[in-house]
Amino acid sequence: MNGLHDVLLSGGVQADRVIDLWRLLLWVCSGVFGLVLVGLAWALWRAPSVRNGSRPLHPDGPARARLLHWRIALATLVSTLLLVGLTAASIATGRALAGLSLDGALHVEVTAHQWWWELRYEDDPPGALFSTANELHVPVGRPVLLRLRSDDVIHSLWVPSLGGKRDLVPGHEVTFTFRADRPGVYLGRCAEFCGLQHAAMSLQVVAHAPAEFDAWIARQREPARAPTTAQRERGRTVFSGASCAMCHSITGTDAGGRRAPDLTHVASRRTIAAGALPMGEESLAHWITDPQSVKPGTNMPPTVLTAEDLQALVAYLGSLQ
């Protein structure tokens, strides 16, 4: 998997703003930390060292005590002012983040499942709606409005290079907005512990130039490519006849399962199994025959096929660009 996955390497305006806040906090906090250590070192250097059990002191006359107390009060006041300033900076950043213009936003509904991401692009007329999984394509420079829902437990969507995270809580629907300002691939992960394969629930965000994005959308709206070879034809039959269609769907075929990723254009994706394996025929074969060895605990069952059927199925799926 390649792609930016770093809070400090930004691909969009939201992440930029957070980096600015981070820099401010880093400088202030490092400065304060340094001052405390310097203060401590100075205190230890200045005070004489004595043997254990030596006579205790009562060194503070009233004047000295007052002086110490004023100094401490001053240091406290300075600390308070710094903290108030940092709070103001945080709130200002928050307001800036909330102020992202939503004109012309792309609407996508994200539903989190154990352990994959379902994405429905909503800007289409109902007949042209499509679903995809685990890979969110967005146009550069255009705001994206995600509607976040969870199908089972609490998950959290996080793409570090594009912005902060949002929890997907069952029973709540939340929106999250961001804008990718530079083309590229951005890696995201689920960031709320959600069970056995929380570690392998990745989301990739692919930001395209607008023309490329339009082309991608147009391809995704089309139903699945009809098989062009006998092997792929056999593969489609295997798909419909085996257990695949119980959970998966391929638009344009009889397979209409809604419980697992939509596979209509699976071969156009960069990875399968929410980022666990790179897209490819070998990966597909591995995933289909022994998913537990890739993601122990996954709900995808192992499927037993003859070698020929497996090859045919994989060839068919590999053709679904």
Binding site: T237, Q292, S293, G297, V304, L305, T306
Partner: peptide, 29 residues
């Protein structure tokens, strides 16, 4: 939590459950 194939039964009378497999249905659905 068993994530691989279920344990093979050893002490049941009758045919083995392991014989149950989604068979080569593509060629003989």
């Amino acid at each position: 939590r068993r994530f691989d194939t279920p344990p093979k039964a050893t002490d049941r009378a009758g045919p083995q459950g392991a014989a149950l497999r989604p068979g080569p249905f593509a060629s003989a659905p």
